[in-house]
C-alpha cells in the first residue's frame, strides 16, 4: 500500500498539480523563443552598438557563455528559416562580441 500511495502522491505532484505552473525564468524558454530573444538583442545592438548592454541582455537569458548563446540562436534561426538579413544581424552581434570578448571565443563544437 505504501507503493500505491507513493505512486498517487507522485502522480499528483508531477502530473496534476506541479509546484510551479507559471512565473518561470527566461532560461526555461523554448529554443525558438530564445533565438528570437537573441535576435531582438542583435537588432538593438545593430542600432546602438552598445556591446555592454547586449552582453547584459544575453546573460539575463541564460547562464551560458554569450557567444555560445548566439551560436545556438544562429543554428536555430537557420533551422527555422530566418531571413538572411536576420542571420546577418545575429552574426554581427557574434562578431561584435568576439572582438569585445576575445577570451570567450568558443572552441569548435564536437
Amino acid at each position: 500500500m505504501i507503493g500505491v500511495g507513493a505512486a498517487a502522491g507522485i502522480f499528483y505532484g508531477w502530473g496534476l498539480h506541479p509546484a510551479q505552473t507559471s512565473g518561470f525564468p527566461l532560461h526555461t524558454l523554448r529554443a525558438d523563443y530564445k533565438a528570437d530573444y537573441v535576435l531582438m538583442t542583435a537588432e538593438i545592438y545593430r542600432q546602438d552598438g552598445d556591446l555592454t548592454a547586449a552582453l547584459e541582455r544575453l546573460t539575463a537569458l541564460e547562464d551560458t557563455p554569450p557567444l555560445r548563446i548566439i551560436q545556438q540562436a544562429i543554428l536555430t534561426g537557420q533551422q527555422l528559416g530566418y531571413a538572411r538579413s536576420d542571420i546577418e544581424t545575429l552574426a554581427a552581434l557574434f562578431q561584435g562580441l568576439q572582438k569585445g570578448l576575445p577570451s570567450l571565443t568558443p572552441t569548435a563544437e564536437p
Binding site: G3, V4, A6, A7, G9, Y12, G13
Partner: peptide
C-alpha cells in the same frame, strides 16, 4: 506512501 510521494 502518499505523503512520501508528495514529498518527492
Amino acid at each position: 506512501g502518499l505523503l512520501l510521494g508528495l514529498l518527492i
